[in-house]
Nucleic acid binder design. Sequence first.
DNA 1: TCAAAAGTGTTAAACGTACACCCATGA
DNA 2: TCATGGGTGTACGTTTAACACTTTTGA
Lengths: 218, 218
Amino acid sequence: MTGCRVSVDTVLFRLGLARLQVLLLRRLRPPFAGWSSLPGGLLHPREELQAAAVRILRQRAGLDDVYLEQLFTFGDPARDPRGRVITVAHIALVPPATPLPAGDASWTPLHALPRLAFDHRRIVDYALQRLRGKIEYSPVGFRLLPEEFTLTEVQEAYEAVLGRVLDKRNFRKKLLSLKVLRPLGRARKVGAHRPARLYRFEESRWEGVRDKGNVFVF
Amino acid sequence: MTGCRVSVDTVLFRLGLARLQVLLLRRLRPPFAGWSSLPGGLLHPREELQAAAVRILRQRAGLDDVYLEQLFTFGDPARDPRGRVITVAHIALVPPATPLPAGDASWTPLHALPRLAFDHRRIVDYALQRLRGKIEYSPVGFRLLPEEFTLTEVQEAYEAVLGRVLDKRNFRKKLLSLKVLRPLGRARKVGAHRPARLYRFEESRWEGVRDKGNVFVF
DNA sequence: TCAAAAGTGTTAAACGTACACCCATGA
DNA sequence: TCATGGGTGTACGTTTAACACTTTTGA
């Protein structure tokens, strides 16, 4: 007895202009020729699921070293008109400076998605829902930021993901109280205003936060 | 190009003697003959993933009408010695009165698991972790209870899942403040002590709870 | 000196947590 | 009347949420 085909699709998020963006590819051939789709591809015979997602992001978008987690497995028997393919969807996050990928790939703002091939719209919707949930109790948000960032940038990331504005004073108070940021003692000067202090996220300090039952809600 | 095989495995939880139990099957044939394993089986060609889980629970454990949700997809290329099989793991919850299933299936307390076939131990561990997380912000806990229950039974369910004791007064205060239970105005008499009032979970009242950002933490 | 973004504290309400005794029942 | 589990309230500390002005800089 042989099985069905298995693919891996990835919803790759990045921040652009204080908006969440998703990486989409333009499909060149049927089915759904001319439509946009998530970067994805078939699982190789001896490949881990996550390794497949990494390989596909490298091949199709020239990206390396991204944060990845499994999202959900979509198995509607009719999701691919060519025949049964179940897909293991993933979420990936990259910092804003990530270079614009090759020709047929582009960053698309989440609020202006075109029609997507297959059930990819459902996958994107679910990915956003999951990201919104997760950012409130885990430090995934920092994966959307460069290594060194300002508090305003963190707040903008949270606002972009959650889709609502947050109170500056409360946000900073909460964020700093978690003691997971290391101040770099430097500031970044941009434009005719007060320079912003730079920080770095210290992964190692996060452990204590979960243990204390402390969460990360704004 | 043909794919690998896809199976569906389910971690089926129930409460027994105020302890969490898992349904295990005894394997009759290799690989892992004589070991215990989760109820699982191969996905059929035109079958939804969740439908496969339902079918397998009916076939292998004689169960119907269980609460089911997808857990995670495990894809280690070496997880099955016979060849590549990726498995879409699910969590299922049933109330305590669920009849003891057929011959080769048995309820096993979580704290006394035998060696499990394949990577099933990892799957059970992850399922418990997920259930613990989820019970704190969603009403899944009621799926482990009969339709009519006492507040003490709810608390015992939470204690069994979370693995720690909870304060009776605080638990009741919080639970009742959510306004998701309908008091039945009746009581259940058992033994030489005050009868316990019966309640029913009102699914329809849950919506407002999530919307208000209210959560379910003890 | 102006515009622009950075940075900062207080108060009131809600929530979480710790804690001990009376009630209703059947034996 | 006793043993058993059911049922209840208060006080304190912590967390959240609402809210506006001063600082630093370059143009």
